[in-house]
């Protein structure tokens, strides 16, 4: 097993608040890993540190043996890390297909001149991107809604559309921030299968989720953080019976 992502002493402070406190963990290539913890534990902040939306105050983010902590977000995406957002961030006024084409962007080359002169390369690339986008929509089961505006999709489908957009960047690693948020049981069950299918494409998955049934069923490894610090790590069975986790997380949560 090779390590794809490695967080080393990752720390982020917001004023006096230590949102992420010397967090260390590795994600093995090909795994499905869950990052869990109570509200405000710092999970989303960890994601934002990985994708370069925030800069760490201490520590490092190593992806594929390379430090990425100073790279701009779009570079990190083109290296192969894709993400979805906890609060859905689609391009609401644009069609579903265009949202996915946004993901295709970083694997395309044509610039403004090629567009104005509509070179053969540009046209071929556009055609290929459209094919990729349709394929990713099909993968998440939204092909029939390709020309719908993103804002007109159901909440659950908007989450799937974000996943399709992320997949269109052809990532090696995908991070999903509460992908089941707002989904009903049926949708969640289908999502678990989709997550497995993503992994079967050779893409490593790291996800944040409050829905414990999803976490326990889909993830092979869990990392638990509380108040910014890692308090436990292991397979779902071990985590479920870890007294520290029960006290800090499961005990305080009413689910």
């Amino acid at each position: 097993m090779t390590t794809l992502l490695s967080l080393k002493n990752l720390t982020k402070r917001f004023g006096g608040l230590v949102a992420v406190d010397h967090v260390n963990f590795d994600v093995e290539a090909g795994a499905i890993v869950g990052l869990i913890g109570p509200n405000g534990a710092g999970k989303t902040t960890v994601f934002n540190l990985i994708t370069g939306n925030y800069r760490p105050d201490e520590g490092d983010v190593i992806f594929d043996n390379q430090s990425i902590k100073t790279l701009p977000t779009h570079k990190i995406v083109s290296l192969g890390i894709a993400r979805t957002f906890q609060t859905i961030r689609l391009f609401h006024k644009l069609a579903a297909i265009e949202n996915v084409l946004a993901g295709c962007h970083c694997r395309m080359q044509s610039g403004s001149l090629a567009a104005m002169f509509r070179t053969p390369t540009q046209r071929r690339e556009e055609h290929q991107a459209l094919q990729t986008a349709l394929k990713e929509l099909e993968f998440v089961g939204l092909q029939s809604q390709a020309d719908q505006l993103a804002e007109n999709l159901s909440y659950g489908n908007q989450r799937l559309l974000e996943i399709a957009r992320a997949l269109a960047t052809q990532p090696r690693f995908i991070i999903l921030d509460e992908p089941a948020g707002g989904m009903n049981n049926q949708e969640t069950a289908a999502l678990i299968q989709t997550i497995r299918n993503i992994r079967d494409r050779g893409i490593t998955v790291l996800l944040i989720e409050h829905d414990m049934s999803l976490v326990m069923e889909a993830c092979e490894q869990l990392v638990v953080i509380e108040n910014g610090a890692k308090i436990a790590e292991g397979d779902p069975q071990a985590i479920q019976s870890d007294p520290k986790v029960i006290e800090a997380y499961l005990g305080t949560d009413e689910e």
């Binding site: 779009h74 894709a82 957002f85 403004s112 556009e126």
Partner: peptide, 27 residues
């Protein structure tokens, strides 16, 4: 032509949501 291209779309993406555009790999 410019509008209906990767370039034109990129401008619209960053207009709609800067963070999401950058997070989708757009410089």
């Amino acid at each position: 032509r410019l509008e209906n291209s990767r370039f034109g779309r990129a401008l619209n993406f960053l207009r709609e949501d800067d963070v999401a555009a950058e997070g989708s790999g757009i410089n």
